[in-house]
Amino acid sequence: MSLLELKNVSKIYGELKALDKVNIHVDQGEWVAIMGPSGSGKSTMMNIIGCMDKPTMGEVLLDGVDIARESSKKLTDIRRDKIGLVFQQFHMVNYLTAVENVMVSQYYHSMPDEKEALDALELVGLRERAHHLPSQLSGGEQQRVCVARALINHPELILADEPTGNLDEANENIVLSLFRQLHREGTTLIVVTHDPEVAEAAQRTIVLEHGRVAREVNNENFDPNAI
């Protein structure tokens, strides 16, 4: 069943077409990588799927709702309720501890629940670091906290933008291992990356060039049970 569908989506800035009649779909529970060089339109697509921007033309159906027609306020609500975001730069609130960073995500969704936040940290293997500030955590640990923050409200979709871009190989493997675990549990994942190794971890890769879908590749080596 399709969770996300982009139909003839274009984003035009003056003379520049950042996205040009893009058509993609992502099924429920699927893990899709979006690849492409700089300027290919990955960021623009990420912003549109993440309800941070609206297309100039086309439809963006998220769980059946065309988010391209919604107001800014509604987009905020949808983003809060349905999407978990993970960024390359982590973007933790640096004066809050790890568990508090996770709880902030709960504030605007439902009710802050420390136990639930600790459980989310347990899931990413960081329960014992729950009361540490970001400055006391390594890059990999911070990214894992961000994954926990993205998961806490049980979103339908995890959208990750270069999640391993600032990590060394060891931490990259830890984060990918987390994604594999989430995928096994049925979470839909869209990972925007320029790293082929990260893309290979996904089930399917969509390659963008100059704002268009150049090709879609099913990863034949994908192993759903890989750790």
Binding site: G50, K73, R80, L85, H91, V93, V104, Y107, Y108, H109
Partner: peptide, 16 residues
């Protein structure tokens, strides 16, 4: 700016 952007992305409205 970045801190506020994070809050907005986590669901904080402009009014909040």
């Amino acid at each position: 700016k970045r801190e506020f952007a994070v809050f907005r992305l986590l669901g904080m409205s402009r009014g909040q």
